[in-house]
């Protein structure tokens, strides 16, 4: 019964939060209006959300978010130094990451994380969603950096996301 009324609880909470932030208020009227929208929009767009996502370990997710946030800041200082240095000494490379994560949402979160962090941009996902092509601005050891990214980002994501 709850599945019918509230197909995507996380999406609903997110929509309510976005509505309140957009209006920059927590007045009762806006909370009610936001709640109505948060109930209606997931129902109306049901067809666009084929997979049901369940978050299993909130603490792992929180830790992952903090790690990513920290990495974004560190990676930015690193990239800034690379950009301001000489472009001739940079060693750009394409790398291919073999994905173990099967959930489409997980794969897209992983690709976005990789784009935002250490000097890498995800360029292409193979149609079978098993390989991710990554471009790195400067990398010494391709295998080591791939291993680190898998360890740091893919492992916690696989722990957190469960598709049913």
């Amino acid at each position: 019964m709850w599945n019918k009324v509230l197909p995507h609880p996380l999406l609903s909470v997110f929509l309510l939060l976005v509505w309140l932030l957009l209006n920059n208020t927590v007045a009762m009227g806006h909370v009610v209006l936001g709640a109505v929208l948060a109930l209606l929009i997931p129902l109306l767009t049901l067809g666009f959300w084929p997979e049901r996502v369940v978050v299993r370990h909130p603490w792992v997710l929180l830790k992952f978010l903090l790690v990513v946030l920290w990495d974004i800041v560190v990676a930015n200082l690193h990239v800034a130094a690379l950009i301001l240095g000489s472009a001739r000494t940079l060693q750009p490379a394409f790398m291919v990451m073999e994905l173990d994560i099967r959930s489409p949402l997980g794969a897209s979160i992983l690709a976005n994380t990789i784009s935002l962090t250490p000097g890498t941009v995800s360029c292409e996902l193979s149609t079978d969603r098993r390989q991710l092509l990554i471009h790195a601005l400067h990398v010494d050891d391709v295998d080591a950096s791939l291993r680190e990214m898998k360890q740091r980002y893919e492992r916690p994501l696989m722990e957190v996301l469960q598709v049913c």
């Binding site: 930015n76 990239v79 800034a80 950009i83 784009s115 935002l116 000097g119 941009v121 360029c123």
Partner: peptide
């Protein structure tokens, strides 16, 4: 591809 890094991160 190298130009892509500046705007997306910094």
């Amino acid at each position: 591809f190298m130009r892509l890094h500046g705007p997306t991160k910094a």
